[in-house]
Design a protein around this nucleic acid. Structure first.
Lengths: 194, 194, 194, 194
DNA sequence: AATGAATGAGACTTCATTCAT
DNA sequence: TATGAATGAAGTCTCATTCAT
């Protein structure tokens, strides 16, 4: 998997944007329902209700579609996190909301989140997605250091990794009690940071 | 990838066992050095110093080789964990040693550990590997409940997930200070459990 | 590549003619700068500043565009040749001018000339282009037989082939001294005919 | 068309060599009977009586097969030319034999020769084929300069181009009288050189 | 048992052409 | 009449697996 990654048509028309979205969403559903390995461009096109030729008019290759999906998911999460960071809430309140945002995001489509976690390591993310990643991690760092200014430098990364792992394992085990999950994560995070 | 999963030759002949091991180890090295996606049976055979025909005399298909590798890795970890569980150490001491075992295991070949984490979700593990998984989780549960008898029922799974996540993210970030890592994990685990 | 070959609009409307010319010239430039293999109808349209839909309103298929280009080039050459034939010059003078016309024509756009040489063999030329070819070869035959009435019947074809080959190989080798080339061709032609 | 060009298996077994030859000869026949544009790797494999997979075990891509064919044809010609150069014949005799070799070679499979002429310009020939080309042109230069030490520096290239063009145009026109062709070429060559 | 040449389904991708707007 | 999004047949190439030796 190498090569160009940028979408081919910058959404000039809303129709084009709709098709692009349909393709990305088709991949999301496929990853949720089937998995990464059986994902083929022909199946993506079929699910998106688009011909294979159209698909390649919007994306230069399979990898680029996955990157677009990652970008979409990261943007959604970043929007929530940024809003939390910019809110007037107390540091502690911000951390709690951050945990909530993580749960909401990963629990919405747990199998998708899991699949993308692997894809992110495999794929060349490209400028834009890497930038999202960076901004996300900066936002988290900012929030953590408000409440725990003396925390270990690894703390933000550790906290994110832990929370992700707990949410994943919970979601995969089929849990549904999000309040219980939230309180376990909170305990772990404060235990680690405090 | 479906179908039979058991190695074809279970003979005690050491020659056969050596070849089987060579094949499994070839996969391990390939996953470490290159990755999952470019892994092909022909490359495995080449690395193992075996013809592709021979490879298929030892394993019925590609998946079976991956499962054998998972089994090998799990067995190694289980041996350590069982020894800890059966030792006369104090509950607290056991937990600390458990963390140490996890670090040792995952840090020995971090990229391999990461790749297998994904493979385990993708692949049909088969009787034997699932059994190892079960025994591993029981051993951990046993140790945790010694020290924290009232812990949440999700606690053992959560603790394992957290520790794995912290080790992974540390290893992937290229950290080398294992003592520092150990103390961060300990804080997180006790914070969560305590 | 089969089927209809005539341009679709033969109207005298200058707008239409201008578009048609733009398309044909776009192909010429592409063949010169890039080559035959990467030539696609979409790239032609883009270079011509025309939508792909419009392109297909002027030409029924890709082949027809190439044929139109061949026709254009042949017409240009034929005009020169006819003028030479109809001039009052001496037979020898006519032959010399013929060589000059060949050099001028092929050296103007050598890579284009070379590419079209191949295309002419590949493509169904159609009535009109075949007719041009015929008139061209008749004109050359006429001129040759003035000076060498007893020449071999293959002579005109041979002379054209030789001259083309010498010009091509010279142009492709990057020569720029057209006088030197002209005298080599003259020697070859008279050597052959004399 | 880019990338590796070397055959994948250096003829260890004679069976392997036979398969490689079958593939190359299949391309030769296809070029003669059908042409370059409709040439596909699947059709090559079919004609060679080999699966598409096998074809790609012998050659890394389509281009490499064409290069192998060029190499084969060039080697055959070079062998003849080298033998002439090394013979004890008189300079004039050598030139005549050279013309004979060219006719024999190009007339044996005229459509193939023509197709390869185009392919040679399109394709990355690679070390070995370029080397053959070089040795061929040196051998011809050597022979020409024996008889005409003061000839123009372009003479050898021009002579080859002329002879090729005359043979081609003759063969394509369906001539069969090789003696007549030979004498026309001889006249042209000596006319040019003398 | 071992070898490695052979197989062929199927993946990714291109591009001439059509058609709704 | 112009546009350009959409189409899908077909091409190149890979790789898990089989089989003749």
């Amino acid at each position: 998997m190498v090569g160009n990654i940028e979408p081919r048509k910058r959404g000039r028309q809303s129709r084009a944007k709709a098709t692009e979205d349909a393709i990305v969403e088709a991949v999301a559903r496929f990853l949720e329902e089937v998995g990464l390995e059986p994902l083929t461009t022909n199946k993506i096109a079929e699910r998106a209700g688009v011909s294979i030729g159209s698909l390649y008019q919007y994306f230069p290759n399979k990898e680029a579609i996955l990157v677009a999906l990652i970008r979409r998911e990261r943007s959604l999460l970043l929007a929530d996190v940024a809003m939390i960071a910019d809110s007037g809430a107390s540091p502690q309140e911000k951390i709690e909301r951050l945990i909530g945002a993580g749960i909401k995001h990963q629990f919405a489509r747990p199998r998708l989140a899991l699949a993308l976690e692997y894809v992110e390591q495999t794929v060349n993310l490209g400028e834009e997605a890497q930038d999202l990643e960076r901004r996300l991690s900066e936002a988290v760092s900012g929030i953590v250091s408000l409440q725990f200014p003396d925390a270990d430098s690894h703390a933000p990364r550790d906290v994110v990794a832990m929370a992700q792992a707990l949410i994943n394992s919970s979601a995969m085990a089929g849990e549904t009690d999000l309040q219980a999950l939230r309180s376990r994560i909170t305990k772990a995070v404060y235990g680690y940071l405090g």
